[in-house]
């Protein structure tokens, strides 16, 4: 295998591993964003629904924290699982399955579509936090599509190598 191909393979593998590690960080960010929105956001639906159930004594007081905790954990775990799969893919561990790329792509697309909605009905006092959140989401979208692109290029190079062999 010539040096240039080896370098490209190393580059794309490194990109995928880096994106996978970034997914872990974004998982934490998603969980934190949900928690902050629940605690300080204005009347989130989950908050209202839980309050109704707690006031009707259908759920204990602490149930809200358990449910919030579970949602945060799910958000983090979802990203963690995709990130771990990406890292394993980049390191060539196990069979290289691509379903995590499809899921990540859907996530990335959903995030991309949601970014403009940050700026609808925005208050001037919230501008800085909205911009910060939007920038985080832009970074996430870039990371996801870079991961997909790198995986695609890596697969193309490996296929070409197999055909040449």
């Amino acid at each position: 295998m010539d040096d240039q191909k080896r370098q490209l393979i190393k580059k794309y593998e490194s990109n995928i591993i880096l994106s996978g590690r970034s997914m872990l960080f974004f998982g934490l960010w998603d969980a934190f964003k949900f928690l902050a929105t629940y605690l300080y956001g204005e009347g989130g639906e989950l908050n209202e629904d839980l309050n109704v159930l707690i006031q009707a004594e259908l759920l204990p007081d602490y149930a809200e924290w358990i449910i919030v905790g579970i949602v945060c954990l799910l958000l983090f775990s979802f990203n963690f699982y995709i990130g771990a799969k990406a890292i394993a893919y980049g390191k060539g561990r196990g069979k290289r399955r691509v379903w995590f790329l499809i899921v990540a792509g859907i996530l990335g697309l959903a995030t991309l579509v949601g970014i403009p909605y940050y700026f609808s009905d925005i208050k001037i006092t919230d501008l800085d936090s909205v911009i910060a959140t939007a920038l985080m989401d832009v970074a996430f979208v870039y990371m996801v599509f870079d991961m997909i692109y790198s995986a695609g290029r890596l697969a193309a190079i490996n296929k070409k190598r197999q055909m040449e062999a």
Binding site: D3, R6, Q7, L8, K10, K11, S14
Partner: peptide
Amino acid sequence: FYPAWGDYGD
């Protein structure tokens, strides 16, 4: 080894 300036070359 892989130096940082090497663009993924060893």
